[in-house]
């Protein structure tokens, strides 16, 4: 009789988190909130890596999570710079009003 939490529970939590991030990306109108939801999805991926790292006793998953965090930092810096540039030229961050590249 083991009292440990099975890996599947952690994976299901990661799936719920990922899908919540995906919902936010699909439904929110504010570009900054869309970015935050992308961070949520990246965190869900991290959680999956760490859950399997514990199950397999392998620290490669930890290193992958570490690199994901570094890439997320780079992505946030560049993405927020783009949001600032768009806000400066358009005066809005509403993704429904920014569609000059759509057609």
């Amino acid at each position: 009789m083991s009292h440990t939490v099975p890996t599947a529970n952690y994976l299901i939590l990661a799936a719920v988190l990922f899908c919540m991030g995906m919902l936010g990306v699909l439904l929110r109108r504010n570009a900054l909130v869309v970015f935050m939801c992308i961070e949520l999805m990246l965190n869900a991926a991290n959680l999956t890596f760490l859950a399997f790292a514990r199950e397999r006793g392998d620290s490669i998953g930890h290193l992958s999570a570490f690199f994901i965090i570094a890439v997320a930092a780079a992505e946030a810096a560049v993405g927020l710079a783009i949001v600032i540039a768009v806000f400066r030229s358009r005066g809005t961050v509403n993704i429904e009003e920014i569609q000059s590249m759509k057609h």
Binding site: V5, P6, A8, L11, A15, R54, E55, G57
Partner: peptide
Amino acid sequence: LAALVLVFRRLPAQESLAWS
């Protein structure tokens, strides 16, 4: 979400590798 949860619930429980 439904597909992921279904797959994860079917994962074989590897008690021997639980570290906690």
